[in-house]
Design a protein around this nucleic acid. Structure first.
Lengths: 262, 262
DNA sequence: CGAAAAGTTGAGGATCGTCAACATCTGTGG
DNA sequence: CCACAGATGTTGACGATCCTCAACTTTTCG
């Protein structure tokens, strides 16, 4: 059903380096840069707000452990969750285009993040165009995932939306952890899932129950088993955006050739 | 109601250089690069498909004249319009992360585009980190506009969506043409507007009629007058994403200081 | 002028939201 | 280890928003 995931660099146990190394052979210097990004650590508890909307965007963050999410809230309290962030994700790149954060950031579980001042970003820019291109490409992947989300919310009904959502999370998890198989723990409340998909918590509950009764998924506590992956893919018109990217245009492509014997 | 738009570089009559120059003081070399991007021109008629979904992403495009849009279509024909592209926009940057286009591209009016092979992108990357940062920042703006769209589709009802949509277009137009005032021609069918906002053409028609009767907008042929901009802003919780960006972190910031006397 | 595209309006219906009551889970402190 | 409070999940009844279908009008363009 699915190819074996192949990675360019061996797994390191560091989720950021693992994620980057999934796409690109990393040089010693690249790894040093990425390690430097994660020098500081800071933890938050579930439901803690890491950064409010409108806060200065001096920092962006690398997710070390745990899940968190970005969101916007309207004056009357309506909330839209914009992105779920997993270990290895870089958070807040789009925000650095502005002086103040356009999204809020909140912990979905207990989390450990590595804050990194955006002023130090230009070191990477000038030092490693190759890493710059990869960071930019990861931003483009996020972009394309957002496009999928728009299509999902704009043109699909509730069960299709939930199906797509579950598959997207599974794909994302498979990058940093190729052995996920077909089940995973989903530490997100149904209200949060609803706020991601433009639904209410009530309707998410109903939809999940229906999908379980239809044999598409199974639930034990908060873990989900994808019982019929192909069925879900068909109904949600799903495509994996994380699996394979095009790095052929990267500057310094020669580096890959140098160490291609591995 | 709104500050006078200030631009870093004088208007040139070239819409890409105008847009970039709105945000950044451009060097002679930068202008040469941007001119080079627009060396080739190609035209399409209304409704022509410029690039199908799944086509190779060898090229991206700069919009010279006219409006076009990116979209996805599902197997059963449901369409989601993802972005409207105006003169001065760079199209297809997110697609270069993949070997095949994830979106289609179609002409909303007669258009003239400048195709540019993505393989030549690394010249800009290595040659002008400053321009690279600006291109990346423009990508982040697109990203944030997408976030707004998700909030709009996911959590707003029809009249709020349409209000937000009109204001977004107005903001975008004001960058390359500061004298738009409060009315502009909208060369988009109501079906296309619906496919952008997750609505049907029928409901867009009803909503526009209601908004006109409420005195929020006026319509003459295909041109729209924003009769009550503040009212629309309030109901759509609108924020201008194009108006001001943060360029302080750009590499080569010294260049700006050198020519800051202007 | 004629055909295709685009816009309008009405009637009826489906999907999803709201409200509310209740059940269950989780974590913290006594 | 238990008790309790807060958070989370479930289910039902009802209603609102928006969709579908369809007929018709108006505009656009070769």
């Amino acid at each position: 059903m699915r190819d074996i995931y192949t990675r360019k660099s061996p797994r390191s146990g560091d989720c950021l380096i693992d994620k980057m190394g999934y796409y690109l052979e990393l040089s010693r210097q690249d790894i040093d840069h990425l390690t430097d990004l994660q020098r500081q650590e800071q933890t938050w508890r579930v439901r803690d707000v890491v950064r409010e909307m409108g806060a200065p965007t001096e920092m962006f963050y690398v997710v070390k452990t745990g899940w968190c999410f970005s969101y916007t809230i309207m004056a009357d309290g309506r909330r839209q969750v914009l992105q779920i962030h997993h270990p290895g994700d870089v958070i807040g790149i789009p925000d650095i285009a502005y002086e103040h954060a356009v999204t809020g950031l909140q912990a979905a579980t207990d989390i450990c993040l590595c804050p990194f001042p955006k002023s130090r970003l230009d070191t990477i820019f000038t030092d490693s165009p190759r890493l710059t291109a990869l960071i930019m490409t990861l931003g483009m992947i996020d972009h394309v995932v957002l496009l999928d989300r728009i299509r999902t919310i704009g043109r699909m009904n509730a069960d299709e939306r939930v199906a797509h959502f579950l598959l997207e999370i599974l794909s994302r998890l498979r990058i940093t952890n190729p052995d996920v198989g077909d089940s995973f723990e989903l530490p997100l409340s149904q209200e949060l899932i609803g706020d991601t998909l433009g639904l209410t918590n009530v309707y998410v509950s109903r939809t999940l129950s229906l999908m379980e009764r239809a044999g598409l998924i199974e639930r034990i506590d908060r873990s989900i088993r994808i019982a019929d992956e192909q069925g879900l893919r068909d109904m949600a018109d799903f495509q994996d955006r994380y699996y394979r990217i095009d790095t052929s245009w990267f500057p310094g492509g020669a580096l890959e050739k140098l160490s291609a014997g591995v």
